[in-house]
Amino acid sequence: MKVGRIAGYAVLTVYAVISVYPFLWMVSGAIKTREEVLAGGHLIPRLPTWDTLVTTWNQLHFVEYFRNSLVVTGLTVLGVLVVYSLASYAFAVLEFPGRRALFWFFVSLLFVPGITMLLPVVILEKNLGILGSHLGLVLPFVNGTAPLTVLLLTGAYRSIPKELREAARADGAREARIFWSVYLPLSRPAHITIAVLTAVPTWNEYVLTRVSINDPSLYTLPLGLETLISSQVPRYNEVMAASLIIVLPVIALFLFLQRYFVNGLLGAIKG
């Protein structure tokens, strides 16, 4: 048993090193000169410099692109939490015809590749007149998170004792009051988990954004990175610096909320 545990730790350690190594190269390249990056061969910079990060910050128009990414990500997270928390409450607590079938229909959408919906979404948005706007990004992002969000939040709400709802109803509370005062506070870790799971892919989304947005003033950070790559002969140290700038907010968000994230997943699974 002890040998098996040691072997398991060894495998996980090797996997962790392989997974982290590209990220370390990105951090290393972000503080190297262009010549040192092209020379390659060593992870630790010989002459580390912050000039690459400063130059890249200015070229990337970070403040403008950051604001656009923040708007799209924030509205998406807000839409997901509002819409699907209500839907999940209905699936978990309320009784209505077809509840079970509708729930599993939502869950089954997890197995539909998102890329297959790209063309229909673009055509629909063009007909609605929202193609090329931030709203045209937010609505598909909200819709795309439906399966996983409904699955996790429904599980979290089901884990809350029914006696609490019955006691609230006995005191005269209506469903809206019960949802707001009982279920939302008790399932806060699950909502934070959903917020993180929604924010990270939305922040990093490229495909739909590239197809939809043509106005540089509406570019998000991934498109800003693309302009940095395609505007000149690629300077790989600046590309890695831009990638580091883009990914740091996501890492900070996860580290800040990781305790709630883990608890939210455990609560949803138990439910």
Rank of each mutant, 00 (worst) to 15 (best):
N263D: 13
Y9V: 12
Q232K: 11
G136E: 12
I251C: 07
F141I: 12
T209L: 02
A176T: 06
V112S: 14
R169K: 12
P140T: 08
G98V: 00
T202D: 03
L186V: 10
L12I: 07
E226K: 09
P234W: 03
T55W: 08
T154E: 11
G79D: 00
V207G: 02
L109P: 06
P48L: 08
F106E: 07
V250H: 03
V71R: 02
S230C: 02
Y89K: 00
L148Y: 15
W180S: 14
F256K: 08
V211C: 04
P201F: 01
E238N: 11
N143W: 15
V182L: 06
G132H: 04
L102P: 01
L151A: 15
E64K: 15
P45G: 08
S212F: 03
T116H: 10
R100D: 10
L135Q: 13
I6D: 06
P45D: 06
D215S: 02
I194N: 07
N204E: 06
L118Y: 13
L24C: 05
I194D: 05
T149M: 06
L223E: 06
L53V: 14
T49Q: 05
T198E: 02
L164F: 07
E35Q: 09
L197H: 03
L102K: 00
N237P: 08
V112E: 11
F66Y: 13
L248E: 09
M26D: 10
S243M: 07
M240K: 11
T145C: 15
V262L: 13
F105D: 00
E205R: 04
A167K: 05
H61F: 06
L78D: 00
L109S: 13
V17T: 05
G271L: 01
W203E: 02
H61C: 08
S159W: 10
R5T: 15
L110W: 07
T198P: 01
N214P: 00
E125C: 14
V239M: 10
E175C: 10
M26R: 12
D215A: 01
T33F: 04
R34D: 11
F62K: 11
G114W: 09
Y219T: 04
L153S: 11
N237T: 10
T202R: 02
A199I: 01
V233N: 07
E64N: 15
V122Q: 11
R67D: 02
G4V: 13
T198G: 02
L265H: 03
F106Q: 10
G264W: 00
F105M: 06
Y21S: 07
A16P: 00
G74D: 01
P222T: 03
L135S: 14
Q59Y: 05
A195D: 03
L153N: 10
T154A: 13
I130R: 13
W25S: 12
L253H: 11
E226N: 09
H134C: 02
L119K: 13
I269T: 14
V72E: 03
Q232C: 04
V14H: 01
E238M: 12
E95G: 05
V142E: 06
P249R: 07
N127R: 15
L124K: 11
P216N: 03
Q232T: 07
P249G: 09
L124R: 10
P216S: 02
N214R: 05
L208C: 04
Q232I: 05
S159H: 14
F256Q: 05
V182I: 11
S88Q: 00
K270T: 14
Y15G: 09
A30D: 08
